[in-house]
């Protein structure tokens, strides 16, 4: 299989990258790990005339701190995130999702920025990022802007990022004491698998260690985009953590889910599984929040 022809650009700074992107408009595509883009190009689904590689730009491959937030560099690979010591507490959700993506070879190349910009409904890193309230940090010709991720995803493969813009980071709240995360994925195989349903959960406990201060549940593969479950959040906030609350939240998540039937699974089954996985992910998150 051959890749179509293109020119390759290696800007040395974000400003240079924006300049190249501006020059070529929708003829340009940004490449990081290439695990998705190159596959689509080999299949003839995409044929950008210009690829803009980000490897020459410093600072896109680290986790930085900014006031109360963590800024995750978009070129961090799934492997790096899965092994990162900085993603503790609720932020562990991202590490868990990253660890379950594809295969070791894919994780060594696939980046969080690519996973977010590719915007697949089952994306292993997007679903966790939603429960963390992550914001996309975008640089563009009109200056930088921030966009909450739930507004960033518009549809399968579609985002609010404009052609001339570059994702420069993902901002998350700093890991808090008494928080924890869970991630559950159901697929046929145990590796090299896209989720039939995946669920991320994060819980922030009150100092009493029992009351849920805040909790979020995000669902994958049950809507055109990775989605938050507002029903689950409402069912959990202020409640005592435990099976009862989780079961109610799971029911709410199943109600919120908007699955369709396709060759991989029926809507009915996906909805059933959302409920099971939500309950399990919350249980996992709770245990993590308790430090167990």
């Amino acid at each position: 299989m051959l890749l179509p022809r293109f020119s390759y650009h290696q800007p040395a700074s974000v400003a240079e990258a924006l300049e190249v992107l501006g020059q070529h408009g929708d003829q340009a595509a940004i490449i990081a790990g290439g695990t998705d883009l190159l596959v689509n190009m080999k299949h003839g689904k995409l044929a950008p005339r210009h690829l803009v590689g980000l490897e020459g730009i410093d600072g896109l491959e680290e986790i930085g701190a900014d006031n109360g937030s963590l800024v995750v560099g978009p070129r961090l690979t799934a492997s790096a995130l899965a092994a990162s010591g900085e993603l503790s507490g609720a932020a562990q959700a991202l590490a868990l999702g990253a660890a379950s993506l594809g295969s070791p070879q894919v994780r060594n190349r696939a980046t969080v920025g690519g996973n977010v910009c590719t915007a697949r409904p089952a994306a292993d890193m997007c679903v966790p990022l939603l429960v963390l309230g992550a914001k996309a940090l975008l640089a563009g010709p009109d200056g930088p802007r921030e966009l909450p991720l739930d507004e960033f995803f518009l549809g399968p493969g579609q985002t609010a990022k404009k052609p001339g813009e570059l994702l420069t980071g993902l901002s998350l709240p700093r890991p808090a004491e008494g928080s924890g995360a869970g991630y559950e994925k159901l697929g046929l195989r145990k590796a090299l698998e896209i989720a039939l349903v995946n669920v991320a959960a994060a819980i922030w406990l009150e100092p009493d260690g029992k009351t849920i201060k805040q909790a979020k549940v995000a669902l994958g593969a049950v809507a055109p985009v990775p989605m938050l479950s507002p029903g689950a959040e409402a069912a959990l906030t202020g409640q005592t953590a435990g099976e009862e609350a989780f079961a109610q939240a799971a029911e709410a998540a199943a109600t919120d889910a908007k699955p369709i039937s396709d060759h991989r699974g029926s809507a009915q089954y996906r909805r059933e599984v959302v409920q099971v996985l939500t309950r399990r992910a919350l249980g996992q998150a709770w245990q993590a929040a308790l430090g167990q």
């Binding site: 295969s103 046929l188 195989r189 145990k190 590796a191 090299l192 698998e193 896209i194």
Partner: peptide
């Protein structure tokens, strides 16, 4: 594809 047609991996 071998991504969507699932033959067992070592984990399976």
């Amino acid at each position: 594809s071998l991504g969507e047609y699932h033959i067992p991996t070592v984990l399976d």
